[in-house]
Design a protein around this nucleic acid. Structure first.
Lengths: 194, 194, 194, 194
DNA sequence: CATGAATGAGTATTCATTCAT
DNA sequence: CATGAATGAATACTCATTCAT
């Protein structure tokens, strides 16, 4: 008796997850071009051929990996609000972004390993917009509605600052004083409630 | 008339510079792994064989390239002072770093392309310290001598901020408002001399 | 009510036909090596596994395909006569061969795609004899009994001519003037009755 | 002291010829898809890498091979005449084509092995026109200027006939009575001088 | 009878590096 | 000092075939 469709679908989903997670991990550790398909397959405990059963190519693996990470990030942060942002919400945003960073170091490493390679970035342009666009929009809106004189500059500044903080933390999670730095940012923007 | 030894040495040095500059340019544009030795040789107008006469390997090219860039950067910035930093000097530092960024975009692209690839970074660890170590030291010293409560945190913060600013500017030199952001940093630290 | 043995056998035969026809079609369109088992299975609406239930291998598919085509061709043409061929019968032969060509373009494409690949042809040597041997025999017999001086040469000539006609027609069915050419052959051999 | 440009050019030409000849031979023997680059390299006594130093890809090898064969054939046959064809010239054409066939069996095998594979033919469309176009033109012109009623049909017929003759001869050079068949064609068209 | 997940050997292609001249 | 022909190991990807269910 053959396996049911559902059984097959389950197997597929499990394997797909296993493969993409392994790939993300290796891309994060070693970069895109230094990771071979053989290596991914070996680490995932499957054959090279099977990988191609689930993903079209190495690029596909990269794109799908980035896509799922980006979406997962977006859901965690929740930019999608139409009403005006309150101060406490920017605080929430800051907290959640730094929380996500601490808890998902691997994913952030993947992100930075990947976007700083010109050729690799080209592959991901579309997927990257999922993250960058709503984030910038939200920041601009916040600074605008809170009476900052140059909201675009403010957004660019905070964006750069967060980018740098992530970058430094990824680079040396042990020694970079991320909590102290977060406190400083909160004070800078006067975000503490009460 | 045969060339003198000195002339030979000069030719040698010129060729070496030409090669390394070509390599840096290509690494910046396309990343380390997407640039082939053949390409570098072709663009530099020499043969592959000759390249190996001057540099041991592709890795060597990378290391020497980074080394020369780092030194050139250090000389431009001049961290090496033992006396206490004055405010106007931090201003100078900030100005010169952003100036250097604007004028040497290619080199900064190279830097970011290269340090964010874990495997490639491994090759460069030693060379990177030339830049990062004195910079951090200088910042810490400055904040300490200017009465900041947590000089290490302040240094880490400013470091991250500058890192982020460079990263954003490299990514989109046209649209990132670097001058406005610089102004904001100057105000933040109250650096404007009157 | 469970299916009877006979019904099962019928289903089997239908599936087998479906598979082999699909295979022939694809081999004709894309060549043997450019057609994958997956593709055949997909187009036939079955699983790869099932295909192996009916046929041993890709080669087997090719051989059985050729075998069935060859037999179908032979039955259409009816070479198997012991009595001496009359003129009108050669006319019939010519007509039926060209008719078959026009109506079964796919099969002829398959034939030519396949026999002109040396390695593939090796696989089919036995099956090919089903066609070529009786055809040559018949022609030789005809020319002999009709008083031609060199029946073997005549047979070889007509064989080559028909081979070329088929080849040209397969290649460009729209532009090759097959009817005019047929007329010319009929005149050449003075085959028109009365 | 480095090799001179001329020396390098010589080496290149020799190797290029060696490679392409080996490739043609193998494509003729085994077909395009059944011949691997490794095999070609091995038979030519060079490394796979070197092949790619001289030819861009396997397809390039095929195209360049066909191109050179086609040109060599064209030069042997000499279709390029503007004046009206005389009878003895068609005889010359027939003779030279069959001569070429006998002497260059490998090349003709290559041709037939290659053009009958749909996918492979696509690659060669442009190169094939070098042969087919002038040949058809010449035949049509001949039949026209010699008062045949349907010159296009005549050309198509002769074309098909020659195609078939070549095909049969390639297939069984020992047993196909090519000389007898040639004689028959000469008689058919009444080409014998005097 | 039927499925499609899984394998592994095979293929074209790239590229840092060596070396004879 | 200078050349580029030559190598070989590595890489992404394909596909006929097997097999547990």
């Amino acid at each position: 008796m053959p396996k049911t469709k559902k059984q097959f679908a389950e197997i597929r989903e499990e394997k797909k997850s296993l493969i993409i997670e392994t790939a993300i991990e290796l891309f994060a550790e070693k970069g895109f071009h230094n990771t071979s398909i053989s290596e991914i397959a070996k680490k995932a405990g499957i054959s090279k051929g099977l990988m191609y059963n689930y993903y079209e190519s190495k690029e596909d693996l990269l794109r799908k990996g980035m896509y799922s990470l980006a979406n997962e990030f977006i859901q965690n942060i929740d930019f999608n609000r139409n009403k005006v942002l309150e101060k406490y919400e920017l605080l929430t945003f800051l907290n959640s972004i730094i929380d996500h960073l601490k808890k998902n170091l691997k994913f952030w490493k993947f992100l930075y390993a990947v976007i700083n390679q010109p050729v690799v970035f080209k592959i991901l342009e579309k997927e990257m917009e999922i993250i960058s666009e709503p984030m910038t929009k939200m920041l601009v809106k916040y600074f605008k509605s809170n009476g900052f004189k140059k909201p675009e500059t403010e957004a660019a500044f905070l964006n750069a600052l967060l980018n740098g903080v992530c970058s430094e933390y990824i680079f040396a999670p042990e020694s970079f004083p991320i909590n102290e730095v977060k406190k400083k940012i909160i004070e800078m923007y006067n975000l503490k409630s009460k």
